[in-house]
Amino acid sequence: MSGIATFLTRRRGGASWHFTDVLAWIWLVAGLLLMFGPVVWLGLSSFKTRAALSEFPPTLLPYETAMVHVEGFDEPLPLYRVMMEDGEERLLVQVRRIGTVAQMADPEAPEEIIRVPLAARQPVREIKLATENYSTPFKRYNFLRYFYNSVFVTVVATIITLIFNSMAAFALSKYEFKGRTAVLAIILATLMVPLSVIIIPLFSVINGLNLFNSLWGVILPTVATPTGVFLLRQYMLTIPDELLEAARMDHASEWKIYWRIVLPLAMPAVAVLAIFSVMWRWNDFLWPLIVLSDQELYTLQVGLNSFQGELNVQWHYVLAMTVVSMLPVVVIFAFLQRFITSGIASTGIK
């Protein structure tokens, strides 16, 4: 431990400590607790049984009172560590509880009932992962369906976004034509009008197109992202025009120039947009909430919200499904962290 501590606190250049160093470290450690803590807590909690979740104060790890099968009893009985009157400590199972007295028995000799005051016994606890929190919602509730819907929306919307946006960006970066500035201005203008402002008329458009309560109604309004067009256009502007000219001399058609030359070369930007698009669509909430009314069509986010909004919240399921719905994003982040952060830092989009 001390080795780690010195590793972490050792400063480059070996300069002496300044009070701002201390402040910075306090900030970082507090940040670690505050940012990571809740997620870790969610993860730990998601493996607790319903009974363990309702305990207060809560335990850190998913403990469970050990249960023992005892001859002569159909149900397994909870195991307790009991401090006997003579000071001896024994492991007993509880047969039943009457008032402040528990009737207990030795699991080896269950015929003899021992009466013990409640205060003298401590449950024997063992770590147990309640994996049924994860499996049951998929089996008993619609979560498999939600999961599938989310995947469908995310994948299809991202593919269409990439194709449409890159085509438009190509036209806007590599061709001189009348009205180019106007088109750019229109796209720029729509940056100012986020979805939250046009939900009412968009809702009626979706209804008019018969897309209400359909996954396509969730997908289509999101695919023509102005940010995507701008991101790709900015990148394509840096591809030298000479390459296109060389391709034209090589008898390549314009379409071929787009997908054999420009698109492969714009891959870094396309990849950034793909990552963003996946995250946007996976996390979308307001619009799917509006468009989807049929339970069968809910995405994970909407399904999760409706599940947690029920009168009797089944937290053990909610927590597990929360973990499931954040897992893809966490995995993406783990592998593409550098990509995402540098993408955001250079483009300022999210």
């Binding site: 809740p38 997620v39 807590w41 969610l42 995250m279 996976w282 996390n283 909430f285 986010q301 999760l304 919200n305 947690q308 909610v318 927590l319 929360t322 719905s325 954040m326 994003v329 966490v330 993406i332 982040f333 995402i340 999210k350």
Partner: peptide
């Protein structure tokens, strides 16, 4: 930043 608002809220 990458977590969905629903996840953030539920956490």
């Amino acid at each position: 930043v990458l977590l969905s608002p629903v996840v953030v809220a539920l956490i």
